[in-house]
Amino acid sequence: MDVRMALYKPPSGVVFDHNKFAYYVILTIIFVFSIVEVFTAFWICKSSLTYRRRLWIGGVLLFVSIWAFGAILSIGGFA
């Protein structure tokens, strides 16, 4: 969703209409965060941590990923 917005949806609205650089910086940060999130999920699956610790790290990762998804939706990724 993030890559589609960067390629096909021009910045618009009150905040991003006059500051296109901020739009692309936010999309880049969300994209990099998503890549880190995927590698962290793979690490959790393959790690030798205890079940409780993996569950706790996975819960934190899920909570943070919801914030990134909310950020993409608030920019307009649902259209």
Score class of each variant (00 low, 15 high):
residue 35 I to A: 01
residue 20 K to R: 11
residue 64 V to I: 15
residue 57 I to T: 04
residue 22 A to T: 06
residue 27 L to T: 00
residue 25 V to Q: 08
residue 45 C to A: 10
residue 63 F to A: 15
residue 58 G to K: 01
residue 72 I to D: 01
residue 52 R to M: 09
residue 7 L to C: 03
residue 4 R to K: 07
residue 42 F to P: 08
residue 51 Y to W: 08
residue 36 V to T: 11
residue 7 L to N: 05
residue 3 V to G: 01
residue 6 A to K: 05
residue 15 V to G: 01
residue 65 S to E: 11
residue 62 L to I: 13
residue 14 V to P: 00
residue 9 K to V: 05
residue 6 A to H: 00
residue 64 V to S: 15
residue 39 F to K: 03
residue 66 I to F: 03
residue 68 A to K: 04
residue 8 Y to F: 11
residue 41 A to T: 04
residue 66 I to R: 02
residue 20 K to N: 08
residue 26 I to V: 10
residue 75 I to Y: 09
residue 77 G to M: 09
residue 26 I to Y: 07
residue 34 S to T: 15
residue 30 I to A: 09
residue 28 T to K: 01
residue 76 G to R: 07
residue 75 I to V: 10
residue 36 V to L: 12
residue 63 F to H: 08
residue 3 V to K: 11
residue 65 S to V: 02
residue 47 S to R: 15
residue 28 T to R: 05
residue 50 T to K: 06
residue 62 L to G: 13
residue 22 A to Y: 00
residue 63 F to E: 02
residue 21 F to P: 02
residue 3 V to Y: 06
residue 78 F to W: 14
residue 60 V to M: 15
residue 48 S to G: 09
residue 35 I to M: 02
residue 59 G to L: 07
residue 32 V to K: 03
residue 14 V to K: 05
residue 42 F to Y: 15
residue 33 F to P: 00
residue 51 Y to Q: 13
residue 13 G to L: 06
residue 8 Y to K: 06
residue 76 G to K: 07
residue 6 A to R: 10
residue 40 T to G: 08
residue 20 K to M: 10
residue 39 F to V: 10
residue 77 G to H: 11
residue 28 T to G: 13
residue 37 E to L: 11
residue 34 S to A: 13
residue 5 M to W: 05
residue 15 V to I: 14
residue 43 W to N: 13
residue 75 I to R: 01
residue 6 A to Y: 02
residue 23 Y to F: 14
residue 5 M to K: 06
residue 48 S to N: 08
residue 59 G to D: 01
residue 32 V to E: 05
residue 34 S to G: 12
residue 23 Y to L: 03
residue 45 C to N: 05
residue 29 I to G: 04
residue 36 V to Q: 04
residue 71 A to T: 03
residue 61 L to N: 04
residue 56 W to M: 15
residue 15 V to P: 00
residue 20 K to A: 11
residue 43 W to R: 13
residue 1 M to K: 12
residue 66 I to S: 08
residue 34 S to Y: 01
residue 53 R to T: 11
residue 55 L to V: 09
residue 4 R to D: 08
residue 12 S to G: 12
residue 26 I to D: 04
residue 51 Y to V: 15
residue 45 C to F: 11
residue 54 R to C: 07
residue 41 A to Y: 01
residue 30 I to M: 02
residue 60 V to Y: 15
residue 45 C to E: 08
residue 67 W to H: 09
residue 17 D to S: 15
residue 74 S to E: 06
residue 32 V to N: 01
residue 65 S to M: 12
residue 27 L to M: 05
residue 68 A to V: 11
residue 76 G to D: 11
residue 1 M to S: 14
residue 42 F to C: 15
residue 62 L to N: 13
residue 25 V to A: 12
residue 46 K to A: 14
residue 37 E to G: 10
residue 57 I to H: 07
